[in-house]
Amino acid sequence: MTTYTYATPPGGLPPQSQLLSGRAVFTEAYAVIPRGTMTDIVLIALPFWGNTKTWVLSRPMTGFSESFSHYVMEVAPGGGSGQPETNPDAESVLFVTKGELWLNLDGDIHRMGPGGYAFLAPGADWTIENQGDTPAFFHWIRKRYDKVEGIDCPASFVTNERDHPPHPMPNTNDAWRTTRFVDPLDTAHDMHVTIVALEPGASIPFLETHVMEHGLYVLQGKGVYRLNKDWVEVEAGDYMWLRAFCPQACYAGGDEPFRYLLYKDVNRHMPLNL
């Protein structure tokens, strides 16, 4: 049976003896934010959150990636929020990587552990708290929902990765798989957050070049990614942020699955500025 692990930010600060070197890069087509940059010095505070650390990995930026933001949150025991979302048009996905969180969604309590996944529709009534005795970590991906007349907004739901068998990609002998939490053809959803897994030695063997923006957080393992014109080594805890049409491909390395949490915007017409 495959054992899944989930990377979390290191936090803290590096020692003064550490050399000034690293793998962080920001280009016109992509950014790589290594796990070593996710220290306490780059934290922000959010309104109405207590005993919580927030790392912002991506945000809408004109001329780059414009559709979403991606946070990693560390919630200390007793921490959380009774008013987590301040934008009524925002939809969210929460994905827990360590510890436990108590999500109150429309009056129902969901105890979420590692692999826990929640889709929160715009306007959803939710709060979240760490009632345990150890810190809890989760990803929070936010997007302004793109409403379409005649299509109902999707409903909120809570689930776990283990309840969704991965879909093998065609002709890959199960070496490249995708865990999907919603039907990709359901046009009520305008974003997908999935988990992609490649076995050691497997690859995405062509340069995908497409309209979707991407955020990729490496949950487990390591690999070599082709981003635009460059080959970049990434490992568990690293983040890749891609604008639309950035060419991308990869090889999985190491002796365990290479897995990442993937965001992309989907199922909508391209906006036209007339």
Rank of each mutant, 00 (worst) to 15 (best):
W49H: 14
K53I: 11
S65T: 02
N51G: 13
S58E: 13
P34C: 05
V72T: 02
T39M: 05
T27L: 10
M73T: 00
G36C: 07
G36L: 09
G63A: 01
A29M: 12
V72K: 00
E66G: 03
V72D: 01
Y71P: 04
G50M: 08
Y30F: 13
I44H: 13
R35L: 14
I41L: 13
G50A: 10
I44V: 14
G50P: 04
I33P: 02
I44K: 12
F64I: 03
I33H: 05
I33W: 05
T27C: 11
M38F: 09
L57W: 05
M61W: 03
E74S: 05
S67E: 09
P47C: 10
I41C: 11
T54A: 15
L46A: 12
H70N: 12
S67V: 10
Y30Q: 07
F26M: 14
M38V: 05
T39P: 00
Y71D: 12
T52W: 10
R59P: 03
V42C: 02
A31G: 12
F26S: 15
P47Q: 10
F26R: 15
S58M: 11
G36A: 09
E66I: 00
Y30E: 09
R59M: 06
F68V: 02
V72Q: 00
V32K: 11
F68Y: 03
V56K: 05
S69H: 01
D40C: 00
I33A: 06
P47F: 10
S65Y: 00
I44Q: 13
P47A: 11
P60V: 00
K53V: 11
A24E: 15
E74P: 01
L57T: 06
G36K: 06
